[in-house]
Design a protein around this nucleic acid. Structure first.
Lengths: 93, 93
DNA sequence: GCCGTACTACGATAAGCATCGTATTACGGC
DNA sequence: GCCGTAATACGATGCTTATCGTAGTACGGC
């Protein structure tokens, strides 16, 4: 799980999902990697229990499993998210 | 930082340190890896700002940088520690 | 000065992982 | 049926990293 979040691309995906607060199709993510690599990262997140995926038409929707994560690792996701946001601010400003 | 904590050996070291609440010599750790590998992991933790090290006689003491981590990543360390403890319980019982 | 303990440095190795391109599957619209 | 879009599967590649053994450094006790 920590490993799943320790990659910058994956952390970015999780931040997108958390900010959106709803299901998102893989295609809406603006990531600095190729399509195949994106698929790979989504798979890692899914296999580590961070997200859930389901098809809706031709799009594959991804959901953050907030509740499950909160049960297994209380407070962890929020800590990571706020820390990541802070770090992004620091680098951006 | 997440990467530093995402290795089981390193997480174990951090847990030891947190539980002890004081400086510990590298040698007191009972880790399932060789001496060289232990040194390597301590180096990773140090270079990622998780611990601080200083010599005391022939022993090299390691300290957890709780305050610094708390400032940069509020709540993260505690979340990780409690989650790790819980997971250890689950596997042990 | 010599030895033992504690740790580091270095080189080697094997495994893991992020990345890519291409081919393939699945679905909806025409 | 055909095409475009969305995503996966697969194989390849190159970098990172975890691991080890051996050799070396630093320090304290005798």
């Amino acid at each position: 799980m920590l490993h799943a979040l320790s990659d910058p691309v994956r952390l970015r995906i999780v931040r997108y999902l958390a900010a959106a607060g709803e299901d998102l199709a893989c295609s809406v993510f603006d990531l600095p990697v190729s399509k195949s690599t994106t698929t790979h990262h989504f798979r890692v997140l899914r296999e580590n229990g961070v997200i859930r995926q389901c098809y809706r038409g031709t799009a594959k929707m991804s959901t953050l499993r907030r509740d499950d994560l909160e049960r297994l690792f209380p407070g962890l996701l929020d800590s990571v998210l706020t820390a990541a946001a802070r770090q992004a601010d620091r680098l951006g400003g």
